[in-house]
Amino acid sequence: MKFWRSAQPQGLLLLAPALIVYGVFALYPMLNVVVLSFMRWNGLTADKVFVGLSNYAGILALDPVFWTAFRNTAIWTVLSIVFPPLVGFALALGLDQKIPWRTPLRALFYMPVIIAPIAVATMWRWMYDPFFGLFNAVLTSLGLQGVIQDWLGDGAVALYSVFVASVWQTAGFSMVLFLAGLQSVSKALVEASRIDGANAWQTFWHVRTPALRPTITIVLILSTINSLKAFDIVYGMTGGGPAQATQMLALWAFTQSMQLGDFGRGSAISVVLLLITLAIVIPYLQWALRREERVR
C-alpha cells in the first residue's frame, strides 16, 4: 500500500483512462491512415498489398475528381474565412451596444450553431426545393422569376448554395467569440480615449481593434480548421453532386474508402488533407503557447 501513497502511481491511474482512449481511438487512426495510404486494400479482407506511392500517383495524376474536390475545398475555405467571421463581427459590434433585447437577439443568432449540421442540411435542402421551397416562392412573390434556380441541382451555383447554409449555421459562433473579445477590452481604456476627445470611429479603430487582434486570430484559425472538416452539411445537402460540383476532400476520402472500397486511395486523400491541416495548425499552436507563456 505504501506505493499508492506517493504521487506518481496515483497520477498515472488518474491519467491512464484518458490517455489510453485518446491514444487508441484518436492518435492511432491518424498514424494508421498514413500506413494505409501506401497499401492496396478493400478495407475488409486480409490481403493488404504494399504499393508504395501508387495511391498518391493515382489521386494526383489519374483522378480528376480529386482536383475538383481540392478546388472546392480551397474555395470553401477562403469563403469560410471571410464571410462567417465578417457577419459574426458585424453582429457582435451591434449587439455590444446599449440596445433593447440584446440578450435574446444574441441567443437567436447563436441558435443555428447548436443544431445538428445534418438537420441544417435537411432544412436548407427543403428551402432550396425548386418547386415548393422558400427561396423560389419568395423570388416569385417579389416578381423575380428570372432569378429562380435549381439551387442545388445546378453545378454552377450548388457549392455557393451550400455555403450560404453554412454561413447561417456558423456566423453565430464567430459572433460569440467576438462579443467575448469586445467585452474584454478594458472599459477604462475606451473611457479614457473618449475623454481625450476621440470620436466613436477613432476609439473603435485605435483602441478596440488592436485589443481584438488575438480574438481575430483565433476566429480565423478556428474558421479555417472547421472549413477543412466540412462533411455533414455537404453530405446531407448534395452528397457531393451534381456531377461532383460540390465534392470536398473530406467527403471524397470517405467516398473512396467506404463506398468505392478503395481504402488506399481514400487514405492518401486523408493524408493530403491532414498535411494541409497540420501546416495551418502547428504554427498556430506555437503562437498560442508563446502567448500563454507571455500572459503568465
Binding site: 472538416k229 462533411f231 487514405s267 486523408s270
Partner: peptide, 21 residues
C-alpha cells in the same frame, strides 16, 4: 501538448481508419 494537439485533428478525415479500428 499531445492532447491539446488533438483539438485540431479533423476526425472527418479519419472515418475510414476509424471504421477499420
Amino acid at each position: 501538448l499531445l492532447i491539446v494537439f488533438g483539438t485540431m485533428i479533423p476526425f472527418q478525415v479519419l472515418l475510414a481508419p476509424l471504421f477499420t479500428l
